[in-house]
Measured scan of single mutants.
Amino acid sequence: MKGKVVSYLAAKKYGFIQGDDGESYFLHFSELLDKKDEGKLVKGSMVHFDPTPTPKGLAAKAISLPLE
């Protein structure tokens, strides 16, 4: 699924993505496929991810940034 980063707290390594389906997904650095892309996780960045339901809500897994 595609989505847009709505927040990312680099110090805490987490944030949120708004998916194309309108839902909010929890984003964690550990799910970023290329850790070098962390600096690109800023508000408004477009990402691809696997939407995954968890006991705490919806989460983004296997997060990647589109090729530039």
Results as ranks from 00 to 15, higher is better:
residue 1 M to C: 08
residue 1 M to D: 03
residue 2 K to E: 07
residue 2 K to L: 11
residue 2 K to N: 09
residue 4 K to T: 13
residue 5 V to N: 01
residue 5 V to L: 07
residue 5 V to K: 02
residue 5 V to A: 00
residue 6 V to C: 11
residue 6 V to H: 07
residue 7 S to T: 12
residue 8 Y to D: 02
residue 9 L to H: 14
residue 9 L to K: 12
residue 10 A to R: 13
residue 10 A to K: 14
residue 11 A to K: 13
residue 11 A to S: 13
residue 11 A to T: 12
residue 12 K to L: 11
residue 12 K to Q: 09
residue 13 K to P: 01
residue 13 K to M: 05
residue 13 K to I: 03
residue 13 K to Q: 07
residue 13 K to A: 05
residue 15 G to A: 02
residue 16 F to N: 04
residue 16 F to M: 07
residue 16 F to W: 13
residue 16 F to H: 05
residue 17 I to R: 00
residue 17 I to G: 00
residue 17 I to H: 01
residue 17 I to Q: 00
residue 18 Q to A: 11
residue 19 G to E: 00
residue 19 G to L: 02
residue 20 D to F: 10
residue 20 D to H: 09
residue 21 D to A: 03
residue 21 D to S: 04
residue 21 D to W: 03
residue 21 D to H: 04
residue 21 D to E: 03
residue 21 D to C: 04
residue 21 D to Q: 03
residue 22 G to S: 05
residue 22 G to W: 03
residue 22 G to E: 04
residue 23 E to A: 11
residue 23 E to L: 15
residue 24 S to M: 15
residue 24 S to V: 15
residue 24 S to C: 14
residue 25 Y to I: 02
residue 25 Y to C: 02
residue 25 Y to W: 02
residue 26 F to Q: 03
residue 26 F to Y: 09
residue 27 L to F: 15
residue 27 L to I: 06
residue 28 H to T: 07
residue 28 H to L: 07
residue 29 F to I: 10
residue 29 F to V: 12
residue 29 F to H: 07
residue 29 F to S: 07
residue 30 S to W: 09
residue 30 S to G: 07
residue 30 S to K: 11
residue 30 S to V: 08
residue 31 E to A: 12
residue 32 L to Q: 00
residue 32 L to A: 00
residue 32 L to V: 04
residue 33 L to W: 05
residue 33 L to A: 06
residue 33 L to M: 10
residue 34 D to F: 06
residue 34 D to N: 13
residue 34 D to W: 06
residue 35 K to H: 08
residue 35 K to I: 08
residue 35 K to N: 06
residue 36 K to F: 08
residue 36 K to A: 13
residue 36 K to H: 12
residue 37 D to H: 08
residue 37 D to Q: 11
residue 37 D to M: 10
residue 38 E to C: 05
residue 38 E to L: 07
residue 38 E to F: 05
residue 39 G to C: 13
residue 39 G to H: 14
residue 39 G to K: 14
residue 39 G to V: 14
residue 40 K to N: 07
residue 40 K to M: 08
residue 40 K to I: 05
residue 40 K to S: 08
residue 40 K to T: 04
residue 41 L to A: 02
residue 41 L to D: 01
residue 41 L to T: 02
residue 41 L to Y: 02
residue 42 V to H: 12
residue 42 V to Y: 09
residue 43 K to Y: 12
residue 43 K to R: 11
residue 43 K to W: 09
residue 44 G to F: 04
residue 44 G to V: 02
residue 44 G to T: 03
residue 45 S to W: 05
residue 46 M to R: 15
residue 46 M to V: 15
residue 46 M to Y: 12
residue 46 M to T: 14
residue 47 V to N: 00
residue 47 V to Y: 01
residue 47 V to Q: 00
residue 48 H to C: 14
residue 48 H to S: 12
residue 48 H to E: 12
residue 49 F to T: 00
residue 49 F to A: 00
residue 50 D to S: 15
residue 50 D to H: 15
residue 50 D to G: 06
residue 50 D to P: 00
residue 50 D to Y: 15
residue 51 P to F: 08
residue 51 P to D: 03
residue 51 P to V: 09
residue 52 T to Y: 15
residue 52 T to C: 13
residue 52 T to S: 13
residue 52 T to Q: 14
residue 52 T to K: 11
residue 53 P to Y: 13
residue 54 T to H: 08
residue 54 T to M: 07
residue 55 P to C: 09
residue 55 P to G: 10
residue 55 P to S: 12
residue 56 K to F: 13
residue 56 K to M: 11
residue 56 K to T: 09
residue 56 K to C: 11
residue 57 G to Y: 04
residue 57 G to I: 03
residue 57 G to T: 03
residue 57 G to S: 03
residue 58 L to V: 05
residue 59 A to Q: 13
residue 59 A to S: 10
residue 59 A to W: 15
residue 59 A to M: 14
residue 60 A to G: 04
residue 61 K to F: 10
residue 61 K to E: 04
residue 61 K to N: 07
residue 62 A to D: 09
residue 62 A to H: 15
residue 62 A to F: 10
residue 63 I to N: 01
residue 63 I to M: 03
residue 64 S to E: 06
residue 64 S to W: 15
residue 64 S to C: 10
residue 64 S to Q: 09
residue 65 L to S: 05
residue 65 L to Q: 05
residue 66 P to Y: 15
residue 66 P to S: 15
residue 66 P to D: 15
residue 67 L to T: 13
residue 67 L to Y: 13
residue 67 L to W: 11
residue 68 E to I: 12
residue 68 E to A: 13
